[in-house]
């Protein structure tokens, strides 16, 4: 563990607390390659998105005739149109509610089982893992009809609760993998000493394990949130009224046959995407603080 005192002792490492900085005297060619690689990654990641973002301020004519030019003037009418065409505001509310609750439910359920699976040996563990892995493999198109019937039968059709349950279930395998493999990296000694101190199972889990496992929860949470936020097919199939629909459905309001206006479509795309980027950046800070916590524990 790198305490501040040690860092001061060793001037070659960075004085920063997180201090994992490259050393002086690294091969310049390797450095060049590294930066080139990062630059390419950046360009391909943000290129299409930036282009669509810029284009969302253009008129249809500009988009079609001068693809790379900057918009002549910032044209917000596409965004106004987008709000007029689809019930975006309402869908925003629904999406936020569904994504947040779906993520919390998923993390609670899978945090519990992930811990038990990582830490304890018991009969049937392998069966559970095999079945859960299988869930990862079931094609979505094959789930559509059975899930529709299930949800209808339990009376959750056209109900936000139904979507929340379904999304929590979709994220089940991924969250379980991530969380249980994160729990595996936590040294057992921590719990053993907690037990020696007389703490029970639940207290150990809540006060010792959960705080350390924050990065794991952060990453699983981000993925689960994105899943809830972006899912389209089931949102459409399992609801009927506008009061329960989510944002990705709105995109298709701009995609009807015999429609040709790119500007409004791009604006809608940006409107759907921006919140998830913001949420990611915010949640990411949770992951970062988790990272710092993780660094201390060794």
């Amino acid at each position: 563990m790198s305490t501040p005192a040690q860092t001061i002792d060793r001037p070659r490492t960075s004085p920063k607390k997180a201090g994992r900085i490259s050393q002086p005297g690294v091969n310049p060619l390797v450095s060049m390659l590294k930066y080139a690689f990062i630059l390419v990654i950046l360009l391909i990641s943000v290129g299409p998105f930036l282009w669509v973002f810029l284009s969302s301020f253009k008129s249809n004519l500009e988009i079609l005739n001068s693809a790379l030019a900057l918009p002549a003037r910032l044209k917000f009418s596409n965004y106004v149109m987008a709000f007029k065409i689809a019930p975006l505001a309402q869908f925003y509310g629904n999406s936020i509610l569904i994504a947040v609750t779906g993520t919390l439910l998923n993390l609670t359920v899978l945090g519990m089982s992930g811990y038990v699976i990582a830490r304890f040996e018991f009969k049937g563990k392998k069966t559970i893992m095999s079945l859960v892995s299988m869930a990862l493999l079931i094609p979505g198109a094959a789930l559509l009809l059975p899930l529709y019937l299930t949800v209808r039968n339990v009376g959750l059709y056209d109900n936000i609760l139904g979507l929340i349950l379904i999304y929590a279930g979709f994220g089940l395998p991924v969250s379980l993998y991530i969380l249980s493999s994160y729990f595996l990296t936590i040294p057992k000694e921590l719990e053993e000493s907690a037990y020696l101190d007389g703490a029970g199972f639940l207290r150990t889990f809540l006060t010792i394990i959960l705080p350390i496992a924050k990065p794991g929860f952060g990453t699983a949470g981000v993925l689960q949130f994105l899943l809830c936020w972006n899912e389209f097919q089931f949102a459409l199939t399992l609801t009927t009224g506008l009061k329960n629909r989510t944002l990705p459905v709105a995109l298709f309001y701009f995609k009807s046959q015999f429609a040709s206006d790119y500007g409004a479509m791009f604006a809608a795309t940006i409107l759907v995407v921006i919140p998830s980027i913001i949420v990611y950046v915010l949640l990411q800070e949770q992951v970062v603080s988790g990272l710092a916590a993780g660094a201390v524990k060794g």
Partner: peptide, 8 residues
């Protein structure tokens, strides 16, 4: 109804 949004 599919006659919503930008549908003609």
């Amino acid at each position: 109804s599919y006659r919503v949004g930008v549908q003609v």
